[in-house]
Design a protein around this nucleic acid. Structure first.
Length: 407
RNA sequence: GGACAGGUGGCCGAGUGGUUAAAGGCAGCAGACUGUAAAUCUGCCCGCGCAAGCGUACGCUAGUUCGAAUCUAGCCCUGUCCA
């Protein structure tokens, strides 16, 4: 359908919409009022990673369209221990750890959203505030009658596990009820009318909509985003170094920038639309670049995403490092640095010390395989000694570079 | 509580007494080709050691054996069915 509201047009043309519960209803509501809308986030780690970036940008778009983003932190659900990660039971986090995680995660949201008291200013809430106060019997009486086991069993999240004969605990089974309860609570407390989330959240969102209507007669809406994978089918956000964290202290800006710079050709347009504020005609131009020219578009992508998430300076520094390192064959300021002792250092120790190899064995294999370079020259001898006294460039493969600098 | 089937390296999954640091696949790393892309081909892929080798490792704990991922007992966990 053709949307008339600024919000849905914006979301549609930039590729955020996978499913809508009631497109027309939401469209006309968006024309009529400022919609408070929320997305829930985990508080299991001190930083979110790239996998959550679509949702964060979605809240940003909501605000750009004049509506009110609500960031729901799952402090209460995290307390129980998020069971969604298959069979391994996670360590339960202490309340203090969860609060610290939330504070840390908030720093990233402050870059993407404007917080405050105004009508379209963002707010952050914690479901611990209401979930922890719930009594079990009260919850059962209040919410229990609105869910049938029959229907709960039909949800994909449940059905798949049963079909595969994988464990599904009662805790997990109840998770959807708590999430549904969140939506109703936000509708009452904040006038929230919209929940957004990944496509895997569809069931939970629908439950929340049902529950809110049944208990309070309020009509609320849901939007899901497509499941984001890279063009070769992998989940987003994994690299050699591990997850691509959004927080600066969890992943240096240089590595963050590199992640985007190395995007698959086929993903460039999609990423530009989802993760940057560039106008669509500009994106269309960049996306149309062919052959090696697309690399220019990747640099723009890396710059823009890094700027949003880490700030302008970080983005500029990363780009400068990239051109010095790759185009100039020199060393950029953002590269990792290892102190070079006056007497020099062995190649193996250097590789391990700077973090290019996790163990000495791995470093040796790297050297044996021809992947280790010193000042651009391949080193094939694991006994190779790097002399001290002068700044030296060390590399693992063609992409990971570092600097040995005299102490 | 009972019967049966299971628990193997980041993941999946072979392996029923020595030749098993454990097939194969996926993921990952590196090389070649390129454009810091993809695809393809090649090599690597527990730790320490230059090496011989040593240390860890097949749910946990005790045993049998010259020798165990493989056999025995107990325990823990998961699934299916029964109560």
């Amino acid at each position: 359908m053709t949307y008339t509201s600024i919000l849905l047009r914006l979301l549609d043309e930039r590729g955020y919409i996978h499913q809508l519960t009631d497109a027309e209803g939401l469209d006309s509501l968006a024309n009529a009022q400022v919609i408070p809308g929320y997305i829930g986030f985990d508080a299991t780690a001190p930083s979110l990673h790239v996998g959550s970036l679509v949702q964060i940008m979605l809240l940003r778009r909501l605000q750009q369209a004049g509506h009110k983003p609500i960031v729901l932190m799952g402090g209460g659900t995290t307390k129980v221990g998020d069971p969604s990660g298959k069979d391994e039971s996670r360590k339960l986090l202490t309340a203090e750890a969860i609060d610290a995680n939330i504070a840390s995660i908030r720093k990233v949201f402050e870059r993407f959203l404007t917080f405050g008291d105004g009508p379209s200013d963002a707010v952050m809430v914690n479901n611990d505030d209401w979930l922890s106060a719930l009594g079990y019997v009260d919850l059962l009486r209040e919410v229990g009658p609105h869910f049938t086991i029959n229907r709960m069993l039909t949800f994909d999240s449940v059905k798949l596990r049963l079909e595969r004969e994988q464990p599904l605990t009662f805790l997990e089974f109840n998770y959807m009820i708590l999430q549904a309860y969140d939506f109703r609570e936000l509708a009452l407390q904040h006038g929230c009318r919209l929940q957004m989330g990944g496509s895997d959240q569809w069931g939970n969102i629908v439950n929340g909509i049902e529950l809110t209507r049944r208990m309070n007669g309020i009509e609320v809406f849901g939007v899901t985003t497509p499941l984001l994978t890279t063009a070769d089918g992998a989940k987003m956000g994994k690299t050699a170094a591990g997850a691509v964290w959004l927080n600066e202290d969890a992943l240096p800006a240089w590595d963050f920038w590199q992640y985007w710079r190395n995007a698959d050709d086929r993903d460039v347009g999609k990423f530009l639309r989802l993760f940057t504020d560039l106008p669509l005609d500009e994106i269309a131009r960049l996306e149309a670049l062919e052959g090696s020219e697309i690399n220019a578009a990747k640099v723009v992508l890396a710059n823009e995403v890094t700027r949003l998430c880490r700030g302008d300076e970080a983005a500029k520094a990363a780009e400068a490092t990239a051109s010095a390192t790759f185009a100039g064959g020199g060393v950029g300021a953002d590269l990792p640095v290892l102190a070079l002792p006056a007497e020099g250092i062995g190649i193996i120790d250097a590789l391990v010390g700077i973090g290019f190899a996790a163990s000495r064995g791995e470093a040796k294999r790297l050297v044996a395989g021809g992947g280790a370079r010193v000042d651009g020259e391949p080193v094939g001898d694991e006994a190779f000694h790097i002399p001290g006294g002068q700044e030296t460039r060390i590399s693992s493969g063609k992409k990971r570079h570092g600097v040995l600098r005299p102490a």
